[in-house]
Nucleic acid binder design. Structure first.
Lengths: 191, 191
DNA sequence: ATGATTTTGTGACATAAATCAAATGGCCAA
DNA sequence: TTGGCCATTTGATTTATGTCACAAAATCAT
């Protein structure tokens, strides 16, 4: 069980193939920090350009944006998932606010420190691009499983594919994520 | 105006920043070919794993998949756009068929030949990852501009952002792309 | 614990968009 | 050019889901 910064970074990097060598890890480490933040803390704020991405070690987060004054949730994340704004990574303001749903432990990645390393170390470049590539496949899936599908189909798909969402996220948030009203979600659950 | 393979490859690579050096282009060139295919030709087939990606030099293409026996169009592409299957790139079968909407001129990229080059040449790696990164931003935009929006909002957004789609793609295809019925699209157009 | 605030559920009703049906228009091949 | 096949439009009807209103339940702060 990881107990300090170096160990946790290690445990995370272990998941990546091909594994990062010592050289890459030495370069990355000064740009990675362990953080603890309480529920409701905002990691990324809408319309701002943050220089950080995060790994959720323990806890949960949501991403949402405002549309006609109401919050629309775009995703939820849990243990071992990267959270951050792809638009921030591309030097654009984030459209979304990323907020913690639970008291959480995180690794913060200093993107401005890491980007230059991508030119000198191909493993780091592959590592970042693998994270983006996986996110891209996730977005394709999300479009595929929501486009032209009924409220019930989207609900049952989410229940099948990410059951933990229903255990840790308020239904109000899940409703807008599914693109339906709270009332409709309530009725779908009632069967 | 590019007239042969090398020239067209060049014209395409010119668009990328930072520009590829001669070394990178020499490595890539044997993996790139100029092709001509007629309307209705299928570049990528659903449920198969193709080893090629394409740049549309001249012409148009669509990507679609079958859902309950009907074709759902997931995107349209025109001049100077890359077309291919991200799932194929990740060694997964494509969910979609990519079909030409017009007689077209293309550059084909041999992905199996190019992938090994990414390890030895960081410019090639950056080039591929830039294409994927831009696609990822496009997917985020598409989700953002369709989620929880009415048929009329999605229609007017497409009309504003990609007016050429309405000039070169049959309305039947556009309807499923927008996630609405042909009849509804017709009524929206009638204002 | 206790009340207050927030979240979830239920009912009645409104509406956007789908479906079904059929007419019109456009385009391609012989 | 002509017929035939799609693509598009228009109309009538149905349906899924949203909206509004309020009740019940759960959660939170004091």
């Amino acid at each position: 069980m990881p107990v300090d910064s170096a160990d946790m970074v290690d445990a995370f990097f272990e998941r990546y193939r091909p594994k990062l060598t010592e050289t890459a890890i030495v370069l990355l480490t000064p740009n990675v920090k362990v953080l603890h933040h309480p529920k409701k803390h905002e990691l990324i704020k809408a319309n701002q350009t943050s220089g950080y991405a995060y790994l959720l070690v323990k806890g949960a987060a949501r991403s949402y944006y405002l549309h006609n004054g109401t919050e629309i949730n775009s995703w939820f994340a849990f243990e071992n998932e990267m959270v951050g704004s792809l638009r921030n990574y591309n030097n654009l303001p984030s459209r979304e606010t990323i907020e913690l749903l639970e008291d959480s432990t995180l690794l913060s990645f200093n993107v401005n420190g890491i980007k230059p390393l991508m030119a000198e170390n191909i493993e780091i470049s592959n590592f970042i691009n693998q994270v983006i590539g996986e996110y891209c496949l996730y977005l394709e899936d999300k479009l595929y499983y929501t486009h032209l599908r009924s409220a019930r189909e989207r609900y049952t798909a989410l229940l099948a594919q990410e059951p933990n969402v229903f255990k840790r996220v308020p239904l109000t948030y899940i409703a807008s994520f599914l693109g339906i009203s709270r009332e409709t979600l309530s009725r779908l659950r009632a069967k």
